[in-house]
């Protein structure tokens, strides 16, 4: 079957999709967006977390056909998503994608945007992404994309979360490397920087 939906502001189309394919598979294998990760494919690890019409979901548990006509934000689009949110006054989850939309012009930027070295350094990052690097919250990095999407959504609805709030919001995202301490540090750091910026 054919599936059409919007990813990071760009209209995307996939053909010959097998009906049992997940949104995760289509993103990774058909749209060249492997940032969302395939750690468990059973909704237990959160590494495939994306925003579906603004709502954080496990993309491994969304049938590709269910995404038809909907808005998806992945880790690849997170920096622009956060930037748009900041520019448009921090719209609530759900509204950012489908209501206002990202113009095609804007949307193309995230892919076309060059970085000045092969580390990707110099590209614009969202506050949560920068905080994960700065706090040492990234080791192998396989859980990182899902955690970033979840943490970004937490800070969107709760500007100054308590530690218990952070733990609850990220309790669907497994990490095997860090013991989570530096992930907590990163979210605290992002929240603090967000607070300073306001």
């Amino acid at each position: 079957m054919r599936v059409n939906f919007t990813v990071n502001g760009r209209q995307q189309e996939a053909d010959d999709v097998w009906e049992g394919e997940s949104l995760l598979y289509v993103l990774r294998e058909r749209m060249g967006l492997p940032g969302s990760k395939n750690a468990c494919e059973q909704g237990e690890c959160g590494s495939c977390t994306v925003r579906l019409d603004g709502v954080p979901v496990c993309s491994c548990l969304v049938a590709a056909g269910q995404a038809e006509g909907r808005e998806v934000v992945t880790v690849e689009g997170l920096a622009d998503f956060a930037k748009q949110r900041a520019e448009h006054g921090g719209c609530a989850s759900g509204a950012c994608g489908s209501e206002q939309g990202t113009s095609l012009q804007d949307a193309k930027q995230w892919q076309a945007k060059g970085t000045d070295s092969q580390t990707g350094e110099g590209g614009e990052l969202s506050p949560v992404q920068q905080a994960f690097i700065d706090a040492g919250a990234v080791q192998c990095g396989f859980c990182t994309p899902g955690l970033l999407v979840a943490a970004d959504e937490l800070l969107e609805r709760n500007e100054s979360p308590s530690d218990a709030d952070i733990r609850e919001a990220l309790s669907g995202n497994l990490c095997r490397c860090t013991g989570y301490e530096k992930i907590l540090d990163a979210v605290r750091l992002a929240a603090a920087r967000q607070g300073e910026a306001v």
Binding site: P34, G35, L78, T119, L125, I133, V138
Partner: peptide, 10 residues
């Protein structure tokens, strides 16, 4: 060195 690549999904 790979931090930025890892947080952008690249």
């Amino acid at each position: 060195p790979d931090g930025t690549l890892k947080v952008t999904g690249e």
